[in-house]
Amino acid sequence: MNVFRLIGDMSHLAAIIILLIKIWRSRSCSGISGKSQLLFTAVFTCRYLDLFTNFVSIYNTTMKIFFLASSYATIYLIFMKFKATYNRNHDTFRFELLIVVSVILALLINHEFSATEILWTFSIYLEAVAILPQLFMITKTGEAESITSHYLFALGSYRGLYILNWIYRYYVEGHLDWIAVLSGIVQTGLYCDFFYLYITRVMKGKNLTLPA
């Protein structure tokens, strides 16, 4: 554990909590992509199966359980409790494609051809692109509520901070997992446009509207 990873994890945690608060307080999941949330739930489920086989630390176990539980809770709120507020007609990204490509890549490029390792690799590839339906939805509607943009900023920052963590671990611990590193770079890269808009607009108190 180093400071980059800790802040990254806290940023990830904050993102999830911000999203739950937004939906719960407004009694609405308007502007949120249910497809991205389904993908994140698949990511956590495939990656954290090792909860039962591999103990790392109390911290690690607690976080995994929280991420799993909160992602299922989010899915429940979007598709059941507040489903009347879900903007289904704006959430039209073909997310099946992301799953198919991630499965194929995980089967081809992995550290070891075993079930758990391929599921882990699949979760890493899928996480890298899981935000695309959400970003697509914002592009389509041309705007996002400020709380939704805070959510996205925290969620995007988390993997960016992990990159710093991987640089640190490479030099200090000699640890390098290039599957995670390359995927993390792709994942953070997808947020670049959004980060720019967030810093130039939302941080100055304006709404996140896309330039025409």
Partner: peptide
């Protein structure tokens, strides 16, 4: 190096 079975990150 790969690090199978030592995925200690979240």
């Amino acid at each position: 190096r790969g690090n199978k079975n030592s995925h200690d990150e979240l």
